[in-house]
Design a protein around this nucleic acid. Structure first.
Lengths: 133, 133
DNA sequence: ATATTTGCTATCAAAAAGATACTACTGTTT
DNA sequence: AAACAGTAGTATCTTTTTGATAGCAAATAT
């Protein structure tokens, strides 16, 4: 119809498409832990207990569940090393690299947001804001 | 090579800092709804029921709760218009604009992810993947 | 007069997350 | 030998969050 329609126009359909794309992303990245977990693995594979320590306050039950979900969605691979004592490592897959920009932006945003909150003193966060206020 | 490894130094402290920045971001953006909700308001203020329709499957109780949280965090402003019949509109604040890149990346990622899933046929999503499979 | 729209709230049920304890195995220390 | 530490988780129970359903009070539409 209108070959030159401005791409900046927000049709209701385009809006719905955007909402759905964001929902699709959140569907696999849902929860408090998946993205921090991927960050935790981003400089090399780690073992179960090391991941738990890196994340600071995740319980083994939740960590186990989250790792399984990340495996199903092909962000993480579980590898059992036949070393004695047996060790299991969790390693990022190449596909997890597709999240680089998402994670970068989220990290940048989190950093500036903390700065803003702290300078405004409207709330008093200590370490990560995930800690009690 | 691991997808997120880069030539920069990854000290354990830097890694923890990254994890915490991401956690800080997720602390305020948690849940299924906050980012889709911001997207829904991104081309202009909307009324309660319009937002509910735009999001497709959120219940009024949850929508109400999410809007209050977004208000507290200064992403959204609630405005009561003294029109008869009384209307309430929800409008994005300037600060919500700081999320543009985060949302853009998430949206791009969601789009490519859906394409990947559909072409792999490992799962069979219909509309948003938030719908039953 | 009845139905619909508006902006919600109340109640209850289901699902997710979290706290705590525990298993089973290897190795090390006492 | 007995106790303790580290490995990778699982089992059970409680709390929190989410969701489904119904309803309210005011106004407009049919």
């Amino acid at each position: 119809m209108f070959p030159h329609t401005d791409p900046l126009i927000h049709t209701p359909e385009a809006c719905t498409a955007s909402i759905n794309a964001v929902k699709d992303a959140l569907y696999v990245l849902n929860g408090k832990w998946k993205l921090p977990l991927i960050v935790a693995l981003s400089n090399g594979p780690k073992r179960f207990n090391d991941i738990q320590r890196a994340l600071g306050d995740i319980t083994p039950k939740i960590l186990s569940k989250e790792l399984k979900e990340l495996e199903l969605n092909e962000f993480v691979e579980r590898k059992v090393l036949a070393d004695i004592p047996l060790t299991v490592i969790y390693e990022l897959t190449p596909y997890s690299g597709s999240l680089t920009f998402v994670i970068d932006e989220l990290q940048k945003w989190g950093k500036q947001h903390r700065t803003r909150i702290v300078s405004n003193r409207k709330q008093l966060p200590d370490q990560p804001m995930t800690d009690k206020l």
